[in-house]
Write a protein that binds this DNA or RNA. Structure first.
Length: 415
RNA sequence: GUGGGUGUAGCUCAGAGGCAGAGCGCUAGACUGUGGAUCUAGGUGCCGGGGGUUCAAUUCCCCUCACCCACCCCA
């Protein structure tokens, strides 16, 4: 028989790893709850145009990485490559903006991009994201950054810091793009091929190029912060002050520009110390909601790349069942089933096996399960109306009357 | 999309144009109802797939697929 294999770019998250995921999910959920964010679940499939309009059809995500298809009725659909567009779509569609001045939402689920697989990068990958809609003040930017900071701290990633920058409002951005072009026009032949095409499509991205020659050419270009309008400048200043007061570690990074078109003003990424791949990133998108047909609603949010987060976080201690139940003989197995139920009802994790194996083999299974306690029930014990309880780490074994076994075992096993 | 690396036992990997290897794990026994430690014994297998060169290919050549890494992109 031929073995089926996972399709390229897809990955299984196996036991041993799922514990890590669940731990991360738990910390994240506890954190957003403290800030009173509520979950929004959207479908994995959306109209293709939704993403083209929000992310920008010039971007790589849309032009080469999206899973698109037609359904049986010829609708043009796509597997979501990110979460924000769907959240905004649902926000607009549900009339949520009528009900509250500020909506605090989070989402979690798989996203799809046809990328070449790499470390921490898969074609189906998971993002956890937070979106705050309806808040204009930089204090809201600081709030979502604080959420991310809290998550990183609680997951013991071994230190992290934020990169922060501003892209300004659309006016500032356009002005700055013009400035970059005027700086680089005369030296365009010294730029890499990619950057030459970026000159037209998204000149800001040239600042982010890793090519040495490109870096050389962009070195003297002034920071965008020097040409911001009064409002954008104030916004960034207030945010910085707020982050300072909260004690959140950050660096202002001139070359931090986001690849998605919808960002305005604040953009940020969080890095694990000593790592240059961002674990999570986000920013403000004040024009997206209206651009997708909603009321004029400023917004800010971030998304965590779960696979990346998993690679930088501390592993939780593995969970081990509390007790292993060994039964020999069918009568003992019947009685054992009752004991197992009784223990589980009292919150004790019990593992057992139903194969008729010699005690030696069963003990080996118990050992391998990593349990501290082992209950043994065979014909001899049945006859005498007792159950053996063995402490696997000390080797000490006691005999307990079957009638009181569950209560006694709970006492021993529960610390 | 570009570049590099790797595919051999369940796992980690060594190997060489001529019998397929080690460590770990696994199974059994020493110990017949007690796990871990020790000793002894044991099977580990389409050497990723296809083609070519050769008397002979797991080894050399070509193609292909998969995985890993970097770039790119992005979280």
């Amino acid at each position: 028989m031929e073995q089926y294999k996972r399709v390229r770019g897809m990955h299984d998250i196996l036991p041993g790893e799922t514990e890590k995921w669940q731990h991360a999910e738990k910390i994240i959920l506890e954190t957003v709850r403290l800030f009173n964010y509520r979950e929004l679940r959207t479908p994995v499939i959306e109209e293709r145009a939704l993403f083209e309009r929000s992310i920008g059809s010039e971007s790589d995500i849309i032009s080469k990485e999206m899973y698109t298809f037609q359904d049986r009725k010829g609708r043009n659909l796509a597997l979501r490559p990110e979460g924000t567009a769907s959240v905004v779509r649902a926000f607009n569609e549900s009339g949520m903006q009528e009900a509250r001045k500020v909506s605090r939402l989070y989402y979690y689920g798989p996203m799809f991009r046809y990328d070449r697989p790499q470390k921490g990068r898969y074609r189906q990958f998971y993002q956890f994201g937070v979106e705050l809609l309806g808040g204009r003040s930089p204090l809201y930017d600081a709030e979502v950054i604080e959420i991310l900071d809290t998550i990183m701290k609680n997951l013991e990633t071994g230190g992290h810091y934020f990169g922060v920058n501003t892209l300004g409002c659309p006016d500032c951005r356009e002005r700055y793009a013009g400035k970059i072009k005027s700086y680089l026009l005369s030296v365009s032949e010294k730029l890499c091929q990619d950057c030459r095409t970026r000159m037209e499509r998204s000149p800001l991205r040239i600042l982010d190029c890793k090519n040495a020659s490109c870096k050389e050419q962009t070195r003297d270009i002034p920071s965008i912060r020097e040409i911001l309008c009064a409002e954008c400048s104030e916004h960034f200043g207030l945010l910085a002050g707020c982050l300072d007061r909260k004690g959140i570690p950050y660096k202002v990074m001139d070359n931090l520009v986001r690849g998605l078109d919808y960002y305005t003003k604040t953009v940020f990424e969080v890095f694990r110390s000593g790592d240059d791949n961002a674990v999570a990133a986000g920013g403000r998108y004040d024009t997206l909601v209206s651009q997708l047909g909603g009321a004029d609603t400023p917004a800010v949010g971030f998304a965590i790349g779960m696979e990346r987060l998993i690679t930088v976080m501390e592993s939780p201690l593995p969970e081990v069942p509390a007790l292993y139940l060994v039964c020999m003989g069918s009568g003992a197995r019947d009685a054992g089933a009752g004991i197992a139920s009784g223990l589980r009802m009292r919150g004790i994790t019990v593992e057992t096996d139903y194969d008729d194996v010699p005690l030696k083999a069963a003990m080996k299974m118990a050992d391998r399960a990593g349990v501290k306690w082992c209950a043994i029930l065979g014909d001899r014990e049945m006859e005498r109306g007792v159950v053996l309880l063995k402490n696997m780490s000390t080797g000490v074994q006691e005999e307990i009357a079957a009638a009181s076994f569950i209560t006694k075992a709970v006492e021993r096993v529960k610390p």
